[in-house]
């Protein structure tokens, strides 16, 4: 493999990692605060992608601009998900919670199939086929845009979680639900916000992704498994862990893809996952957890 190809793999891997991170942080945020694994995460991404597609095809809105419209919609869907489903799921055993979100995921896929058929829909703008040359490396314009917006959003989220009272409250609830409640924090309100932000991040990711890829009812599933690997790698519920996990998965996948056949390359993130879980079962960024 020549150096040029290797550099191409690194740059593409980084661009993908930024998108993966954006998808994974929402998942990890919801888990961190509520201790619920949302298997329907990918389907909310799919909804956001359809929203981005229809904003472009029906209203002529550029997907980048559509983010401003789609994000509030996804945030509202997040709070509805909390008050309609998750609120009740909090009281039942974990296995039932999984069944609920898994069922939701299938429900959304089938509803999308009925509503939009199984066909792929594409956002076809001139820039979808344009590339930017960075020395020997070519990055697609849309990937570059997506990468930039993801990183900006991730940085903002990080600052909000670390530096504001809102972030402090969220982290407090994540650390100890009862402790936070005793300190007078409105735990239900925090849950609702965690869902709003966790699902809302997909409102940014969806329009960006649909301009790079395509959308069909099953597109969310392509990312759900990856998001889980990333989140578990970094440590469930850990924000910086998700970033690190995304970086590892994005780069590993891309570099392995340049070296090996695609099937071998696809297994590499899982091999890394197993190796890391063997040495650090709590994930890379989680300190050993209290019972």
């Amino acid at each position: 493999m020549s150096l040029d190809i290797f550099l191409q793999a690194i740059v593409s891997g980084l661009a993908n990692a930024a998108m993966y991170a954006l998808i994974a942080v929402g998942l990890t945020l919801v888990f961190g605060v509520m201790r619920i694994i949302n298997f329907a995460h990918g389907e909310f991404l799919m909804i956001a992608m359809y929203a981005g597609y229809f904003a472009w095809s029906l209203l002529g809105i550029d997907p980048i601009v559509a983010i401003v419209l789609v994000t509030p919609v996804l945030m509202i869907l997040g709070t509805l998900l909390y008050s309609g489903v998750m609120r009740f799921a909090l009281r039942v055993p974990e296995i039932n919670q999984m069944a609920v979100t898994l069922g939701l995921s299938m429900l959304f896929q089938h509803l999308a199939l009925v509503a939009f058929t199984g066909d792929n829909m594409l956002v076809t703008q001139a820039r979808a086929v344009a590339g930017v040359e960075l020395g020997p490396v070519v990055v697609q314009v849309n990937q570059l845009i997506a990468c930039g917006i993801s990183m900006a959003l991730l940085a903002t989220l990080y600052l909000v979680l670390q530096r504001t009272d809102f972030g402090l409250i969220m982290r407090a609830v994540a650390q100890s639900r009862d402790g936070a409640a005793l300190s007078g924090i409105d735990v239900t309100g925090v849950y609702k916000w965690a869902m709003a932000v966790g699902i809302g991040t997909l409102g940014v990711a969806g329009p960006l992704l649909v301009s790079i890829l395509y959308v069909n009812p099953h597109v969310g599933a392509l990312f759900t498994l990856k998001a889980f690997v990333i989140v578990i790698l970094g440590g469930l519920g850990n924000f910086t862990g998700a970033l690190l996990g995304a970086l590892i998965v994005g780069l590993a996948e891309s570099i392995a893809g340049a070296w090996f056949s695609a099937s071998v390359a696809a297994a590499v993130p899982f091999v890394i996952l197993i190796l890391i879980l063997l040495t650090r079962p709590e994930g890379l960024m989680n300190r050993s957890r209290r019972a």
């Binding site: 040029d4 190809i5 593409s12 993908n16 490396v137 695609a262 099937s263």
Partner: peptide, 19 residues
């Protein structure tokens, strides 16, 4: 060049094919 179905990015494969 090979890729997995559902790959979100094929830039590396495209670069290798160009080569």
């Amino acid at each position: 060049e090979t890729f997995r179905t559902g790959s979100p990015d094929m830039s590396t494969q495209a670069a290798k094919l160009k080569a």
